[in-house]
């Protein structure tokens, strides 16, 4: 094993291979975190709509979830990047192909965000549905409107309940961000492969990449545990049992 490879001058770009690794980490984090912001906000709205007693609200959310969950991420990635510019109005398509900055990056962020939103939606839905019906009845019985019941009763408990499954979705988004390499985003996995092709130090390079992913997992897990502890409800058993 020879990790000095990372301090050799890189094939191009003037720096050393370590710079490539760092740049890969930067793009992995950027794609994942931006996509998570989309996934969390869109997914929360969809998840709430999925629990609505009104069909007009529930049905479109259900259709969304079914479509985005049942098509592989890779296929969705290609559709955002290759297909979308062709089927939108011509002027928009031209802009997407020529004027838009960092088209690979933004396609990856949007794709991963809207894909993960369907999974977040399912977690939020099942979190809300795991709250006994009596809680909603109690809220309504004291004169709250349905919106107020969601705001003050269902969502505060629902989000606490879904912290563990949402943590796992958040971890998945970092791993799934590697699919962005298929449309040319030079994130961590892509950089690892590229360095191994130039240096033949495959073992060392893949080891470093794997360790970085492990560190990301570890950091996120620790952070979410802390969050879970911070918002824990005194005396409430439901979410404490793991």
């Amino acid at each position: 094993m020879d990790f000095s490879v990372f301090f050799q001058p890189a094939f191009s770009g003037g720096g050393i291979y370590l710079d490539w690794v760092l740049s890969g980490i930067k793009w992995t984090l950027l794609v994942s975190i931006l996509a998570w912001i989309i996934a969390f906000s869109v997914g929360s709205v969809l998840g709430v709509l999925r629990t609505s007693h009104l069909t007009v609200l529930r049905a479109p959310a259900t259709v969304y979830v079914e479509i985005f969950r049942n098509v592989p991420l890779l296929v969705q990635m290609f559709i955002w990047y290759f297909v979308l510019p062709e089927i939108v109005p011509k002027s928009v398509g031209m802009w997407m192909k020529q004027g838009m900055p960092l088209p690979e990056f933004w396609s990856a962020v949007l794709c991963l965000g809207f894909y993960t939103a369907s999974r977040v939606a399912e977690q939020v839905r099942s979190g809300i549905q795991s709250i006994p019906k009596g809680q909603t009845e109690a809220g309504l019985a004291m004169g709250l409107t349905r919106v107020q019941v969601y705001r003050h009763v269902l969502l505060p408990m629902g989000y606490r309940i879904v912290i563990p499954p949402l943590t796992s979705e958040f971890l998945t988004i970092f791993k799934n961000s590697s699919v962005a390499l298929t449309i040319g985003v030079l994130e961590l996995t892509a950089q690892a492969r590229q360095i191994s092709e130039y240096t033949f130090r495959t073992f060392e390079v893949f080891t470093v990449a794997t360790v970085v992913y492990l560190l990301i997992t570890l950091t996120v897990t620790v952070a979410m545990r802390a969050l879970e502890k911070k918002v824990r409800v005194p005396g409430y058993i439901g979410s404490a049992g793991k």
Partner: peptide
């Protein structure tokens, strides 16, 4: 294995 992306 669960921390590593499938592609890697």
């Amino acid at each position: 294995l669960r921390s590593t992306p499938l592609i890697l």
